Simulated assay, not measured.
Amino acid sequence: MPSPTSLMCTRDSLATELRAMGLRSGETVLVHSSLSSLGWVCGGPVAVVQALLDVLGSDGTLVVPAQSGDNSDPAGWVNPPVPETWWADIRATMPPYDARTTPTRGVGVIPETVRNWPGAVRSAHPQTSFAAVGPCAAAIVDGHALDCRLGERSPLARLEEAGARILMLGAGFESCTAFHLAEYRIAAPQVDNSFAVMTPQGRRWITVSDTAITEDGFGELGAAFEKERPLVRGKVGAAEARLFSLADAVTYAEAWLAQQRPHTAAST
């Protein structure tokens, strides 16, 4: 948490600023967040989640990425890598994904707070799950296929159908997961993807074929999107915040990526 000498935020001040940005009661919103960017928050991540739910109201639905990318093949680990002599044992002993208990990794403390929120539900993918709270939560996280991390059979497509918006709360476009949905629509190459899951026969280490995804270029993509498409910018606490249509972002990204990555489609 930032030093107490930085800007102080409260549940009420955050809610007021979110409403001023145009976040509405009853809507569905996918939030990417950085707690430290907000300043000193009285109540920490719990206060941030409370503020978001205050604004969305009982008819609104809050969605966050709840990724757990460490459940993956150790041969691809780079941050940090592990010795090759460990790989077989890791594949044999990695705990299987459990939507109730597997912690998030690399997405910040606010999504981890949402994951543990009363009534929260979480999608089934062992690496790229989403957690949600609200009346549309179950429909959004349902049916997340093991061979579709962030594509048509993931919560991103359900969010698009629901007319959701994206709130970037101190987070950059590099973390905008919706851009990955566009990758599934430009004929990106297929790759093997491995993880530990629980099946009716018990724990299994499985490998599936899925679309290759990468955040490479997402910063440039986001800058172009922000320049050319409707987007609300504002301040929430000390954080730069952006609010925009998920469907609009995916449509723009599809055209941009097809132009910037012509080798991708050609390689399939």
Rank of each mutant, 00 (worst) to 15 (best):
S68Y: 04
G57D: 02
P81I: 04
I90E: 01
G69N: 12
A66H: 03
G76T: 07
P65D: 12
P80H: 11
P83T: 14
D73N: 14
W86D: 12
A88W: 10
N79R: 14
D73I: 11
A66W: 02
G76Q: 10
W77I: 09
D89K: 07
V82N: 01
V64R: 00
W77V: 05
S72H: 07
Q67P: 00
A75C: 07
N71H: 08
W86C: 13
D73P: 03
D73Y: 12
G60C: 03
V78K: 10
S58L: 09
V78F: 10
G76D: 13
V82L: 05
V55L: 03
S58F: 09
A88L: 07
G69P: 09
N79E: 15
V64K: 01
P81W: 06
P83S: 09
N79G: 05
W87P: 00
W77D: 08
L56H: 02
P83R: 11
N79K: 12
D59L: 10
P83E: 06
N79F: 11
G60D: 02
P74K: 04
D70K: 08
D59H: 13
S58E: 14
P65G: 11
V55W: 00
P80R: 06
D73L: 08
W87V: 04
D59Q: 15
V63K: 01
G57M: 09
G69K: 12
V55Q: 00
A66S: 15
W87Y: 11
W77H: 06
W87F: 08
E84L: 08
W87T: 01
W77G: 04
N79M: 15
P83I: 09
D59C: 13
T61S: 13
G76R: 12
G57V: 05
W87K: 02
A66K: 01
A66T: 07
G76I: 05
I90V: 15
V63Q: 00
G57C: 02
A66C: 10
P74D: 06
T61E: 06
N71T: 09
V63R: 00
V55P: 00
W87D: 00
N79W: 11
N79V: 14
A66Q: 03
G57R: 06
T61N: 07
P81R: 14
E84A: 15
E84D: 07
P74L: 06
D89S: 13
A66G: 08
W77C: 03
V64G: 00
E84N: 05
I90C: 05
Q67F: 11
G69I: 11
V63C: 03
W86V: 12
W87M: 03
S68N: 06
T85S: 15
D59M: 07
T61W: 07
P65C: 14
D70H: 12
P65Y: 07
V82F: 05
G60Y: 01
G60E: 04
W77Q: 05
N79S: 13
P74N: 10
S68L: 04
T61Q: 08
D73V: 10
S72M: 12
P81M: 13
P81C: 09
W87G: 00
L62E: 01
Q67L: 10
D89P: 01
N71L: 09
P83M: 04
D89N: 10
Q67Y: 14
D89T: 13
G57A: 03
N79L: 15
N79P: 04
T61C: 12
P74V: 06
W86G: 04
W86R: 13
P81V: 05
D89L: 11
S68D: 02
V82R: 06
V78R: 14
T85A: 15
P83F: 06
